[in-house]
Design a protein around this nucleic acid. Sequence first.
RNA 1: GCGCCUGUAGCUCAGUUGGAUAGAGCAACGGACUUCUAAUCCGUAGGUCGUACGUUCGAGUCGUACCAGGCGCGCCA
Length: 555
Amino acid sequence: MKQSIKDMVAQALSKAFQAGDLTSDDFPDITVDEPRIEAQGDLSVNTAMVMAKNQKMSPRKIADIILKHLDDPQSIVEKTDIAGPGFINFFMHPKAYHPVVHTVHEQNERYGASDMGTGIRTQVEFVSANPTGPLHVGHGRGAAVGDSVARILRFCGYDVQTEYYINDSGRQINTLGRSVYLRYLEKTGQTLTFPDDCYKGDYIVDLADQILARDGRALLDMSDEEGINICARFAADSILADIAEDLKNFGVTFDQWFSEQSLYDDGKVQEAMERLKSNKTVYENDGAFWFNTTAFGDEKDRVVVRSNGQTTYFASDIAYHQNKFARGFNQIIDVWGADHHGYIPRMKACISASGHDSNDFHVILVQLVSLLRDGKPVAMTTRGGVFETLKDVVDEVGSDAARFIFLSRHYESQLEFDLELAKKKTNDNPVFYVQYVHARISSILKKAADEKNIHTFERNDEAVSLLLESEETGLIKALARYPEVIETAGKNLEPHRITYYLMNLSSLFHAYYNKHKVLTDDPLLTTGRLYLILAVQKVIKNGLSLLGVSAPEHM
RNA sequence: GCGCCUGUAGCUCAGUUGGAUAGAGCAACGGACUUCUAAUCCGUAGGUCGUACGUUCGAGUCGUACCAGGCGCGCCA
């Protein structure tokens, strides 16, 4: 639709120039907007204003000239108007939108898909929580965002791989093992003071119980180191399995689980360090090795190998991101918690120093989630061992509601997640509002089948041409916008645009439903309306699937 | 102190990448169920877009400074 207007205006411009009405043929790009206000038409063009300086004419006069030369062979434009400082407003004929309904049906679940990412291999890495404890709601938001971004990019034609990076090397795993080991010792009757730097959650005690059940008191005959080791391996495996399970119940699975330890085992970290040393990007000072990140805009240089010989987390991250590019990805997307934002400059530095374009590396910083119950904050301290896990939330409100709410805000906004609200089955809860549209339409289709014996839907131009109510035109216009919404969401990595779109489309549908009957006495009109709502249903289902939310047949 | 993010209706948030008279949901108030699902709809009310300059035909959107909140600034992960 926008393209048609664009072509028409472009043609008018060149005709006007040939006729001598314009002084310059240096024309700007024509952008077509949808005005917010109905009185300003369906589409508008600001070209006349943009051209004013160049043509040395007033915008309104240029607008006049454009309209004079405008051809509309298919008469899709009902009326035009010059308004304000020089906008040209187009009021489209309702029938101009009818082809959209056919397009939705023809393209089906591919409606809205594009090829803008064709040939671009993209990796989306998200969650990547340490296997030292269960996922909490913050991880849930990251999971929802990462998973949805991956789905959207795939739909936009990108070749996408999702990945979970497992921080399973040395230290934190050791702390985990020690925590479980100490709880184990307590279970066997020893009294001890539990250190502050150990994990205090109940799940640690559970893990100690499990080891006790499996190995009995056998660990008491070993050295502490050995005992800690056994506890560490058992606990990490067990927790990682739980994490995978929780994510699966949340509708999130990964193409790849990537172990940090494997980078050490395969010598990749060592390799990366040697390469950077020979580059002079990494240099020695005070017995430690430093990455020259300031040369790439960071505030200060960062240590990669400490003077005691141990590598830092940054070192393995460098190797990891080099490895990502080595695996052939052209574009790398990391989803991080907002508290890691200070890490971005050094990662960009590492990408650049490794000979890649730091513009191919995107970080989605997901802001914190504050969990509420009936409007009051739920305490969430990881250190103290009291927190709301993702599993608890998903068990309580369901995966659909949780995902939809996580994706109902821009990821850079802090999010308030009210548990009671998420469980409500009313208008307050946007998930049900959207899913209800899908269920309602299913219900109408069922009734059409049962009572009117209508089972199949084939293209019927005559029936669709009867869709002239303003609510119908509004719905079709919304359907027409969908591909553009997907494209913007993909380009900006912003799933919430789809969430908002779906709520808007749902609102239009509910209003239509309340005002007009779909199943009428007029068979042709009924056919047209069924065809329309079926298209709406397809788009709703499609959009929900990009968010990872189900589309129920009945509720 | 430095850096990043945020600041829009009473509350929670959008805002088509610089367009016209700034939107939605919730809360408040008033209406609509003999119905294809009332888990819905219709209406009313609600604003100095944190503040001040600047950029231009035009600023919620871009720039600078300040104010407020959150987060980050280790040879931690």
